[in-house]
Nucleic acid binder design. Structure first.
Lengths: 180, 180, 180, 180
DNA sequence: GATGAATGAGCTTTCATTCAT
DNA sequence: GATGAATGAAAGCTCATTCAT
């Protein structure tokens, strides 16, 4: 892939994420292209239809969220890393208004999303839970996918402006942690 | 208001609810008018724009949900009435895909919705909780708005085809009840 | 149908015929709407898609060509009427650049065209041939559909500016007539 | 011209002919380039615009059709050679759906086409007619351009799948031949 | 010279909203 | 008051053509 094409693709993904967050997943293609500083044609060259673009953005975001786990673990004590990651995941869910609709749409472009979700986020959360449990900071034996689901359900609403997680999520995290 | 005008208005509200559930809140105005058996012009006479119609449908639904509390209390023991009402509320939330988006849209037509939500559903749930607590069936001291919020958050996903509530909601209800 | 709607429909058919003749059957919908003095929306209200419009224009033209037979017979001696009608048919074919392509396109909107062609033009030409044969002006026993086909094949090219038929068609007509 | 450039040009002409026959003269440039196994850029280097390409393909085809006359004369008795060539010409016309439209388009790229048509095909047909007349197989004195024109007019419709000429053309050829 | 990525005008079609009937 | 025809502003998408690589 040519360097400029790669740059455009990246710009499109970033632009799409921005625009989706601002105007929803149904935002005009032209708006996304403009945000990326690119013609509509370029958008359509890279993503033949809207679903493909949405799927790509979601996938990218999932990947980024999953990848954050390792970074957080490296820079924070395990229990704190877990909390921070959950907060980040919370932000991911809050931004993805279209996610649940997409999953239900039946569009083949979204077929791989569920597997991607569990395949990437499951292991990421597992690594955090395991580290925190090993350090005695959280109770062991929590199923990562159950936790993901619950936090997800509780995070649909728009995030607080200060970036702090939903109070209910906070409660859940509190329950998870072992207090001395 | 003339009798036929009143009939049209009712027909439009029912039609809009049906169509919103089937095709989403962005369904074409014509589709709604057709479902109601009226011309688009009539739709616009009653609701000058789409947001006004959406708000009206939501308001109507909120009212109906609130009104159901008294009926259920009259026909069932208080604890059961509570469960049935929560299930009904769950269905309300699941159908209203557009609700959270509407609340965030900033459209003035939706300005009164939040107050309407708490103003109608709060008291309704309070009456149910009080009755059930008085009968010793549920623990006392539960904040109705907190419960509403939590159940709401947990009910965004599509409902089970059999009409039973979300498993997480079920869990919540179980925790609420006092078991002998 | 409301009077103004009827007027628009007629205006659209006339405009489409004009534009098709000028710019071909693939002319932009906007051009046709503009020619008719109408918004695009109106065009699409009457003809949900281009094929439907093309079919309508062709059908209308076929009808007009068929209807001309009776008029010509009433106003001219039979042999002359025949020649005049053939000339008119020649003009019809020359204008309908898209006809043969349409017939081959497989679009269901064109399904009824072939039957319409033979069903309307066959009888029209039959009446002319019969009258002319009865008057002893042309040889009897000529199959109208064969003649239609042959003249059609010979008339695909643009008509002479003076409106006279193709020389080869003229030859054909000469052969048809009984000269003293 | 470099050898590879020459190859590309040939490939493009062949590809264009194929694609034109399959999808019409308005087929996307990309489709033609792909068929030729080159990039669009290469297509545009050789033919600055679509009309130029169309003209080149028509010219090439005319040349090939004209050239076939000598070959056929060398390998068949003159009368048979004439029939075979007419059949081939018939195929040429049938494939060139865009020809008459092109001639009428006014695009300067097509300016030389009419002269090329008569200049190449006229002499070719003359040679065939003369040879056949000299052999006493066809009547003498037939104007080649008239014949070309008539056969052309009669061949606009899609060819029979078996490659045999139009029945009307067959009739014309029968009339041309002198039967013992 | 070749490639194919990028551009953006232009086309079809939909639909909210207005307004003549 | 009701109707539905008309309007025209979008929006999605395609493709001829240009031009950086």
């Amino acid at each position: 892939m040519r360097a400029d094409a790669r740059q455009n693709l990246d710009a499109l993904l970033i632009a799409a994420r921005t625009v989706f967050a601002r105007s929803g997943v149904d935002a005009p293609a032209r708006e996304i292209a403009a945000e990326a500083g690119v013609g509509v044609g370029t958008l359509y060259r890279h993503f033949p239809n809207r679903a493909e673009l949405v799927a790509a953005v979601f996938t990218t975001e999932i990947d980024a969220t999953a990848a954050a786990a390792a970074d957080l673990l490296a820079e924070h004590p395990p229990g704190e890393a877990l909390d921070l990651w959950i907060t980040r995941f919370t932000r991911f869910v809050a931004t993805k208004q279209g996610l649940s609709a997409a999953l239900r749409s039946g569009d083949p472009a979204f077929d791989s999303l569920p597997a991607h979700l569990t395949g990437k986020l499951g292991p990421a959360l597992t690594s955090l839970l395991d580290a925190a449990a090993a350090a005695g900071e959280v109770r062991p034996g929590v199923d990562p996918l159950d936790l993901l689901q619950a936090v997800g359900d509780l995070s649909h609403r728009a995030p607080s402006p200060d970036g702090s997680p939903n109070p209910m999520v906070q409660l859940l995290l509190d329950g998870l942690h072992i207090r001395p």
